[in-house]
Design a protein around this nucleic acid. Structure first.
Lengths: 256, 256
DNA sequence: AGAATAGTGTCTTTCAGACACTATCAT
DNA sequence: ATGATAGTGTCTGAAAGACACTATTCT
């Protein structure tokens, strides 16, 4: 039997199979605080609760393609924004009862968005809301992550997330923290030009702790990923800071 | 409409869906060199090439459960061995053409096995073979990973892996390297009692580079994860080294 | 001038790399 | 005693934390 003959005779529908979805943790900053974009579920199951934007994965699209599609269709991003956003696979969740309708395996993605893109998405997509995250430093292992409505200034009533989305969210924070120091994801949350103070604010917001200023500046500048633009920030009532661009060097310093 | 009524009316088979499988990278050591357990494919597609052990995911089992089942059924591990092995999800692969039969999304797992378990599995499972890996240090980004048959002493003919399994394997090495320094996975490849030299050999094999002895000993002992057994290795023709056990401390030192 | 933050100089501490050295065991 | 590896003492250099200081801009 040749391989071609085998493939022709093969019956792909022999076994029942789980459904496959992608769910996106859309992380950004709102007034310097880490935030996630959520949709309020209108329908069962879990109607009225908050969920990560997601979608079923079609037979004609890869997992990554499906994630980008969600970015466009459910999160209101322009194709150019969706293509430029930092998007990485997070983890795949496959508990038996994670969805009461049927067996669903979901591939979770983490997307990092600059503050301006978050604002624009919120304005263009009515169903979308930003939730502010409370991420105190709770050790390397992380802790539960609480999400609050943007209006809830006192942070008294944490939002109730649908399905296992709270677990996915907690893992996203962990991933973000873990990669912050040795990758370039911190820059994905910032605009094209930014000050070192803004960069440090991002780090402090994600890590949930304050950092030493001179040491932080040294580390960042010594990596060689920052190119001064020559311009300075505007609109301050004090000395304006220098603006930098992120520019990954071709020569990555390797261990000897 | 109540949630119950909604669920009763819901048709779970409305859309065509991809199949879901798990594939396992079973890593261990063979004579101090990193190795993977592979099965030779007898059937189409990719008959004659080498593949990672895997299986379809049933509707009644989680992803993790399916991975443990493969450990038992296809890799010949006793239930106790399978339960004790280090097993973690690696990444989910969903390219459109990764399997010519049909659309398959596979969740890749990484399993780490002590040398003795590898030897036993090879003896009990006829279809299983060990492939020695060539993992030179090629920078943080890693490089292609070549696998060779155990008999191929000169390492001239790299094995041809089926599907996208070479890609999965390369990612497994990357994950292993990345987690080696800050997690306890190095110990998963060692027997219950081991010497510091053996531990260093594991690190050097996985990183593909040699390490400084005093610095390595200091780091390992200062972490407080090693408990001296009081016994010493036997059968050497020179001074026998002290044997240690891995024992994770309850008090994990946290950042302040 | 005063206020407020940007940005730096420098001391200290911590820790990894390097090297040479001592200790211990089998033969 | 000899050979071979286990295990350690110590110097050096790189880098982070802490703190105080200077610089610059707006009002």
């Amino acid at each position: 039997m040749t391989e071609d003959a085998f493939l022709t005779a093969y019956d792909p529908s022999a076994f029942e199979r789980p459904a496959v979805t992608v769910d996106l943790v859309l992380m950004g900053l709102r007034e310097g605080r880490p935030a996630v974009l959520l949709v309020r579920r209108a329908e069962h199951p879990h109607a009225g609760r908050w969920a990560l934007p997601g979608s079923f994965v079609g037979l004609d699209e890869t997992l990554d393609t499906a994630a980008v599609r969600v970015l466009r269709e459910k999160a209101g991003f322009f194709p150019a924004e969706a293509a430029g956003a930092h998007l990485e696979q997070l983890y795949t969740f496959g508990a038996l009862d994670r969805d009461p309708r049927m067996r669903i395996v979901t591939v979770a993605y983490l997307a990092l968005l600059p503050e301006a893109a978050v604002t624009r998405a919120l304005e263009s997509e009515a169903g979308l809301s930003a939730a502010i995250l409370d991420v105190p430093w709770a050790g390397e292992a992380g802790g539960p992550v609480a999400a609050f409505a943007e209006g809830d200034r006192n942070r008294t009533k944490p939002l109730s997330l649908a399905f296992d989305h709270a677990e996915i969210l907690a893992l996203a924070i962990l991933r973000l923290r873990g990669k912050l120091d040795y990758s370039d994801i911190g820059f994905a949350l910032l605009p094209e030009a930014f000050t070192l103070r803004q960069l440090q604010d991002v780090y402090e917001a994600i890590l949930g702790m304050s950092l030493n200023k001179p040491a932080f500046r040294r580390r960042m500048l010594d990596r060689g990923w920052l190119a001064p633009t020559g311009a300075r920030e505007a609109g301050t009532s004090f000395r304006p800071a220098e603006l930098y661009r992120f520019q990954k060097t071709a020569l990555i310093p390797l261990r000897p």
